[in-house]
Simulated assay, not measured.
Amino acid sequence: MSNQRLDAIDIRILARLQADGRITNQQLADAVGLSPSPCLRRVRQLEESGIIQGYVGLVDPAAVGLGVTAFVRIRLEQQDDTRLSLFEAAVADFPEVMECYLMTGEADYQLRVLVGSLSEFEDFLRHKLTKVAGVSQVTTSFALRPVVYKTALPVG
């Protein structure tokens, strides 16, 4: 993680790349008011510092048969470092788990899980998640539809 100071041009670069990661360097330079060489140098600096972590293509989950989104809250029997590490390692290997957060409050973890159907979720729950040592309680809510979904961070 970097604590590099971002100036206005860096912020414009990040905003444009978050909106279109396939933009050419020339288009990006034009959009942020730089010539191509200094623009590319800045992008490389943002990459090397870890501010830009990578580039991805965003895929519509429903278009690839993953139309069920579940938010799963997990309580563990105990919250010592060993059990936390074991749980985190286990869920990191589950392809259905898109996000996992260590939480405060009633749940120890919150997961966002994508599957193709309720029966697939049941299989995931019964054969994977509840088999993780230390899991004591699982509470699930299913998303009806997304209302706000963003991938771009509010860097400006």
Rank of each mutant, 00 (worst) to 15 (best):
M1N: 12
N3L: 15
N3R: 15
R5I: 15
R5H: 15
R5L: 14
D7H: 06
D7I: 07
A8V: 08
I9S: 03
I9M: 03
I11A: 06
I13H: 01
L14N: 04
L17Y: 02
Q18P: 02
D20N: 12
G21Q: 06
R22K: 14
I23K: 09
I23P: 00
I23F: 07
T24Q: 05
N25H: 14
N25L: 14
Q26F: 12
Q27C: 04
L28A: 03
A29H: 02
D30T: 08
D30S: 11
D30G: 08
A31C: 04
A31E: 05
S35N: 09
S37F: 10
S37L: 13
S37I: 13
P38Y: 06
C39Q: 02
C39K: 00
C39V: 05
L40T: 13
L40C: 13
L40H: 11
R41N: 14
R41D: 12
R42G: 02
V43G: 04
Q45P: 04
E47A: 06
E48V: 08
S49V: 03
I51P: 03
I52E: 04
I52L: 08
G54V: 04
Y55E: 06
Y55G: 02
V56T: 11
V56A: 13
G57C: 13
G57K: 14
L58F: 10
L58A: 10
V59S: 07
D60T: 08
A62Q: 13
A63Y: 09
A63S: 14
V64P: 02
G65R: 04
A70H: 01
F71P: 04
I74G: 00
I74S: 00
Q78T: 13
D80W: 10
D81T: 15
D81K: 15
T82W: 14
R83D: 11
L86K: 13
A89N: 10
A89K: 12
A90Q: 05
A90C: 07
F94H: 05
P95F: 03
P95V: 01
E96Q: 10
C100F: 07
M103T: 11
G105K: 06
E106F: 12
E106D: 15
A107H: 07
D108L: 02
D108R: 01
R112F: 07
V113S: 02
G116C: 06
S119F: 10
S119M: 11
F121Y: 12
E122S: 10
F124N: 00
L125A: 03
L125K: 00
H127P: 01
L129G: 00
T130W: 01
T130I: 08
K131S: 05
G134F: 04
G134E: 05
V135Y: 01
S136C: 11
Q137G: 09
Q137S: 14
V138W: 03
T139C: 03
S141A: 14
F142I: 02
A143I: 05
P146R: 14
V147D: 14
V147C: 11
V148W: 10
V148A: 10
Y149W: 15
K150R: 15
K150I: 08
T151K: 12
T151W: 09
L153A: 13
V155Y: 07
G156Y: 08
